[in-house]
Design a protein around this nucleic acid. Structure first.
Lengths: 109, 109
DNA sequence: CGATATACCTTGACAGACGAAGTATTATAT
DNA sequence: ATATAATACTTCGTCTGTCAAGGTATATCG
């Protein structure tokens, strides 16, 4: 077991931003989003389902995203999510904070 | 107020590593460590006391640091902390994980 | 038919962060 | 002299994001 396992706490607080970043590229649904995360990180990282769906709820509650049921004629039903204007603003802000946090930690570690 | 306030969750999980990193430079105590953090980040960041001291307890519990009371003849008493060999190993590991997390987030955000 | 992949949801527990409050000593300003 | 600030540590209770574990339902493939 040589691979590094990223503990949850290191990415804690970034879940929302990861989701917003994905939705900026276009509407999507949970399962697809997670596959995308896995793909982008070469299978290293993936959101836990409970984490993902509770984040969706939190974001919708905060009006940063909206959701609607897709009308699939085949396969399991999907709930699609769309980022709002407020969500885009929040994403920009979060991204800035990430850059700031990165800079801080590079100084401290 | 133009500065960005780094929310706790962005640095969550890094507290231990910040402390270990500081102790690698030499034995220290809570108050000094926090002043050092503040200095290194130009006053942008500082650990909350409750966070700091509970982290100390956690690290000592895990044998990553040891502590002893300083024999100050003047001023408030200080509890000094020293990093152990295991602590140094842990620091290296945490640092690696930070680099990995950074790389992941730069891909995802 | 059973297994696997797709797709979503809920509940309960845990751990780290932190606000708030307290204890003590020394230095500094009024 | 005395109030205030700075140094220095501690404990308690609460909050929040994460996640393990369980569940539901449909379609496909061997």
């Amino acid at each position: 077991m040589t691979s590094i396992s990223i503990t949850s706490d290191l990415l804690r607080g970034h879940t929302d931003t990861i989701i917003l970043a994905h939705l900026i590229e276009g509407n999507s649904y949970g399962y697809e989003l997670n596959k995308s995360v896995s793909l982008k990180t070469n299978g290293v990282y993936e959101l836990k389902e409970a984490t993902l769906y509770s984040a969706f709820r939190r974001l919708e509650e905060a009006s940063l995203i909206t959701s609607y049921w897709g009308n699939e004629e085949t396969g399991a039903r999907r709930r699609y999510y769309q980022i709002t204007e407020a969500g885009k603003e929040q994403y920009k802000q979060n991204k800035k904070e990430w850059e700031e946090a990165k800079s801080l930690l590079d100084k401290l570690l």
